[in-house]
Each structure stands twice: as structure tokens, then as C-alpha cells.
Design a binder for these strands. Structure first.
Lengths: 226, 226
DNA sequence: GATCCATTTATTGTCAACAAAATACCCGAG
DNA sequence: CTCGGGTATTTTGTTGACAATAAATGGATC
């Protein structure tokens, strides 16, 4: 059962965190219709804060709400997942460009260190899928915040990533190409370190486009039925 | 005083609409600290639905909330406004490309008709600033929905445009270059009509970039003090 | 036997009172 | 006169009960 990760400041925040993680991890399955009272007993909440959290989640597109009819978890089709990647492509391209212009040298060093640890994890090849997925998330997370573009980071971290991660958990790993992805990550960081924003944008766009094509291929193969 | 535009389905929706328009039109000034009870009396609501609406608005970045300390309307700096345009550039570029691939012939015809009416309004030159601003919004709105990318449209229409419009109202018009903007719009539609997605993306990006530079110039001139 | 309508039931939407927390104010000491 | 601490007040956060609406069920008619 999903709990509030850290001591949330308010009950509504707690509810929001719980529900979000529950949705992302698949504990609450897509398309599942959920009653308010059921959720209350499940997460030890009362309906006031819960409703506030539901509103926030609806506004973020993680669930849909019909008046007087109830709440159900959003179910994203394969086509919509691919559309998400198209958005990621342009937005993270921008993030990479701005990160190249604005990240501090310390942040870049940390980013490189992150990749080093990812490399070790892949070499050890144990639970590589999970770590790869998490590592990938970590990498993109850092670049989003490194862009110093508050709204861009908010949209990426607050909207898109949660929807993508929702599928990551279900697919175990969407990438399945750890070495290749790592190499692409390395190149992007290199461009950022050289403060070459244009190249960083290009490489990031190509990186995400490759991931999208990979998913597309899996869908065609029937590995991925959504 | 802002009212619910149409009969909203629920009190919370009503509250959301009221507050959103109030913020966008400047009725609630940026940085203004607002109390819950005050809002309730002002919009004839009770605190339950209001709090739900506040949560949604916070999640969209239109206001910030500190636990136990209250709610205040977000105040976006000039720098942040420009960052918003950077995001628009890439996202609307994508929207234009996908619109060129996916819009129906009817939609394209409507889009052209829209521009015709805009042209007339500009020629009449009465209240041109207002109409230009609204017309511009209308144009971009149609392309966003025409992209057939649900999440992209949601992010543009639900997040970015409201923040941009917040400033539109305060600046009367951010463009101030109606003829030029119209010509750029024409070119974009032309590319869409020819189903040339790549060109449509390029032209849209350039169009928004020009708007951004125009604002930047105004800020430097001191016309625009945020 | 199937369909339409009314009633019932369960669920959501709303409200007003209660509890907790942060700000503001006042008083005293340095 | 200024600064620190403590109390008072205001405002937010939470709760549980009440009202309204939609789905489900059962009965009657075609």
C-alpha cells in the first residue's frame, strides 16, 4: 500500500502523493472506477482532503471525473503514449538547450557522476531493467531542473513524467537498450559540458525519438498491448 | 465581478471558472494575498468547493499556497514570461506540424475563414488591439486542438495560454504588430493547407520567437514593467 | 419475454461547526 | 528606543452530518 513518502505538510498533500504513486505504480489500475469512501478507508483519509487531491489529479490528467458519477483512473492508449513522447521530444530538447546554457559546473559534474553510477549498475547487470528505468528518470529529471525554466520543469516533472512512468512500471522497462541509452546520455552531457546548447537539443531530441520508435516497434510486435 | 460563464456542472467547477477568469483578467492582481472567506463572500461560495478549486488552480500554477499561511496569486516576472514563450515556441511548433498532418479540410477552411475575419477587424482598425489579441488567441487555439494530440492541447490550452493571457490583459496587447502577425498566420495556414508539417513547424516557431523578441524589446524600452 | 418506468439505494456534492497552526500584537527587558 | 518572547486573534485545515443526483433494481405493461 502506498504511503506518503515524507511527512506531507497537509492531509490533502498526503492524499495527493498517495494517489499519485498508487496510480503510477499501477496499484490503481487504469480504467478502474474508484469510490471516494473506498479510497478514504484505504488511505486513512477523510473525504475533504481527498476531494481536494482528486481535483488536483484530475487537473493533471491522471484521472477523470464525471459529476455525481464517480472517479476513474485515466487509461492511456498506445497511440496516446506515443503522442506523449512527441511532446517530450520538443520539451526536453528545449530543456537540454537551456541546461547547456545555464547549468552550473557543479551540476554538470554531478550529472556526469550520475551517469558513472548508472554505468556501474548496468555492468553489474543485476536488476538492470529497474535501475535503468530509474536511472533514466534521474537523468532527465536533472536536466529538466537544470534548464532553470520553472514552468518547463513543472510541466515535465509534474505532468508528463508521471504519465510516462505509469507505463514504465507496467512494462518493467520501456527502454530495453541500456548500453545504447547510456551512450546517448553521455553524448548529451558532453554537449552540455561544452555549453553547446544547439547540439544538446539535437541529441536529446534524437534520444527521445529513438525511445519512441523503440516503443512503437514493441507495440507492432504485440509485446506491448495497451 | 466574474461569474461562471455557463451553468457549471458543480460548485467547484463554478469556483474554478470564476477564479481563473478573475486571475486572468487581473481582477485578482498578481501577488495579491487572498483569504478564503473573502473569496467565498465575493463569489457566493462555501469553503468546500472553493478549496477544491484552489487546489486545481495551484496545480496549474496560477496561484501559490503555503500551508496555514494562505493563498496568493502568482506573480510572473518578465524573465519568466519570456521563458513561457520559449516553451510555447517548441510546443506550438509541434502543434503546427501535427495540425498539418491531421487537420481535416473543413477545419483548415474554418481556420482560413477565421483569418479573413481577423483581417477585416484589423482594417476597420477599431479596437484593433483587443481584437488582435483575441484573434491571435483564437488562431493558436484552433491549431492546438487541430493537432489531435490531446495532452499537447491540454497543456497549451489549460496551462500556458492562461498564464500568457494574464499578461495580454494587462498589456492591452503584447503584439502591437497586427499586420505582420496576420501575414505570419497566413503563411502558417498555407503550410498546413499544403500538408507541409515541417514548414508549418518552422514558421510557427519563428512566429512565436518574433513575438518573444517583440516583448523583450518592450521590456528593454521600459514600456513593460513587471 | 422484453422494454419502459418508478422506486430504491448508494454515491457524490455541499455545508457548517471544530481543531490546529501561523501571523500579529502587546508587553517587558535590555 | 529597540529587540525578544509570549499571548491573542485570525485564518487555514479537517471533520462529520446533510442534501442532491445518478445508477441499480424491481415491477408492470406491451
Amino acid at each position: 500500500m502506498a504511503e506518503a513518502t515524507l511527512q506531507s505538510q497537509t492531509r490533502a498533500d498526503e492524499a495527493f502523493d498517495c494517489l499519485q504513486t498508487a496510480i503510477v505504480t499501477g496499484e490503481l489500475a487504469p480504467g478502474e472506477k474508484i469510490g471516494e469512501v473506498e479510497l478514504c478507508s484505504r488511505f486513512n483519509l477523510t473525504r475533504g482532503p481527498l476531494r481536494e487531491a482528486l481535483g488536483r489529479l484530475e487537473s493533471r490528467g491522471l484521472l477523470v471525473r464525471r459529476p455525481h458519477a464517480g472517479v476513474k483512473v485515466v487509461s492511456v492508449s498506445a497511440a496516446e503514449l506515443l503522442e506523449l513522447y512527441r511532446i517530450r521530444e520538443v520539451m526536453e530538447g528545449l530543456a537540454a538547450r537551456q541546461a547547456a546554457e545555464r547549468m552550473t559546473d557543479e551540476e554538470i559534474a554531478e550529472l556526469q557522476a550520475t551517469l558513472d553510477s548508472h554505468e556501474k549498475m548496468i555492468e553489474q547487470a543485476q536488476g538492470q531493467a529497474y535501475y535503468q528505468a530509474e536511472g533514466d528518470y534521474d537523468f532527465h529529471h536533472r536536466i529538466a531542473t537544470g534548464s532553470r525554466n520553472a514552468k518547463l520543469a513543472q510541466m515535465l516533472l509534474g505532468d508528463l513524467y508521471y504519465m510516462v512512468r505509469m507505463y514504465r512500471y507496467r512494462l518493467s522497462t520501456s527502454a530495453g537498450r541500456p548500453h545504447l541509452a547510456l551512450r546517448e546520455h553521455r553524448r548529451i552531457v558532453e554537449a552540455i559540458a561544452q555549453r553547446d546548447g544547439e547540439l544538446a537539443e539535437f541529441l536529446m531530441k534524437r534520444h527521445i525519438n529513438a525511445a519512441r520508435i523503440n516503443i512503437e516497434k514493441k507495440i507492432e510486435e504485440g509485446v506491448l498491448t495497451i
